[in-house]
């Protein structure tokens, strides 16, 4: 039983890690907390849902579509809106992101209504047994894909020219400008990648869990929790943070009941912020 709870937590934690990866990237590179992150995850989930229902495209295949559409949306939002106030005081960008979130959520409510939907794939219920632990195939595949995407991002950031430019910009803005990096473009690409990751997380979410237009709010907050646990500035941070949250949540809801799920994650958030504001992996205190 304990092993089952642990495995459930790990499988969900991988997805949490992917969810937070985009948020942590955007936060780390341009010092913006993207409150609308959960709303982007929601859009990704609905893209998958629509593609599956109307064209029958397999949700795993729609990863490609959801992430590329979300990249374009993110790139445009950064270029056209966020970039205009990026140097203003931090709560200005926060409020702006809230405005975007409110807009997206309510647009989705009007288009899709508040109904809860589900992507019903034929293989959704199949699973296998190992050491007395039941593992649904979709959860395992989603977990592996989440890890794979994280690894791909790692290689992108370390091995490609754009990736290096993003890292340089986040470490030393003035230096990057001096060496000819076009910051507004780099920021837009970063934001695009961040939202693309949100889109991918949305797709994987839609395969496993039900979706609704208002699902974004709690996912944004969970992404915060994961980002804060893992700390900024590393690729491993979101993975560790995601697994931690997944496991703690899994055991916590088992002990206290599922209604305590959000209380558990917010308590972790506040406790970590108080005692280790730079995350478990981060060095020292704020």
């Amino acid at each position: 039983m304990t092993l089952q709870i642990l495995i459930n937590g790990i499988l969900k934690g991988g997805l949490y890690g992917l969810m937070a990866l985009g948020m942590s990237l955007i936060w780390g590179v341009m010092n913006i907390i993207n409150i609308a992150h959960g709303a982007f995850i929601m859009i990704g989930a609905y893209i998958t849902f629509l593609l599956f229902n109307f064209t029958g495209i397999d949700p795993f295949v729609s990863l490609i579509f959801s992430s590329s559409i979300m990249f374009l949306i993110g790139y445009t939002i950064q270029r056209g809106i966020i970039n205009l106030v990026i140097r203003a005081e931090i709560f200005i960008t926060l409020i702006l992101a809230f405005g975007i979130e409110i807009f997206i959520n309510n647009a989705a409510l009007m288009i899709f209504s508040a109904d809860v939907r589900k992507v019903k794939v034929s293989y959704g219920a199949s699973n296998f047994n190992m050491f007395g632990v039941t593992i649904p195939y979709v959860r395992l595949i989603a977990f592996l894909l989440a890890i794979a995407i994280t690894i791909i991002l790692f290689f992108f950031m370390t091995r490609t020219k754009s990736g290096r430019a993003i890292r340089a910009t986040s470490q030393d803005l003035d230096g990057a400008v001096l060496s000819g990096v076009r910051v507004s473009r780099i920021y837009a690409i970063t934001f695009g990648i961040g939202t693309a990751l949100a889109g991918a997380a949305g797709t994987l979410w839609a395969i496993i869990f039900p979706l609704s237009p208002t699902m974004g709010g709690s996912l944004t907050l969970k992404s915060f929790v994961v980002t804060i646990i893992g700390g900024l500035g590393t690729m491993l941070g979101p993975v560790i943070g995601g697994l931690t949250l997944g496991i703690v949540e899994s055991f916590g809801t088992n002990w206290f009941g599922t209604t305590f799920e959000s209380l558990i994650s917010f308590s972790i958030l506040v406790i970590i912020l108080i005692f280790r504001p730079k995350g478990i992996l981060g060095k020292g205190k704020e």
Partner: peptide, 16 residues
């Protein structure tokens, strides 16, 4: 806490 961290912490307390 300062800046973003303060903002997120207060948001977190309210949600908790």
């Amino acid at each position: 806490l300062k800046g973003h961290y303060f903002a997120i912490a207060t948001l977190g307390v309210a949600e908790a």
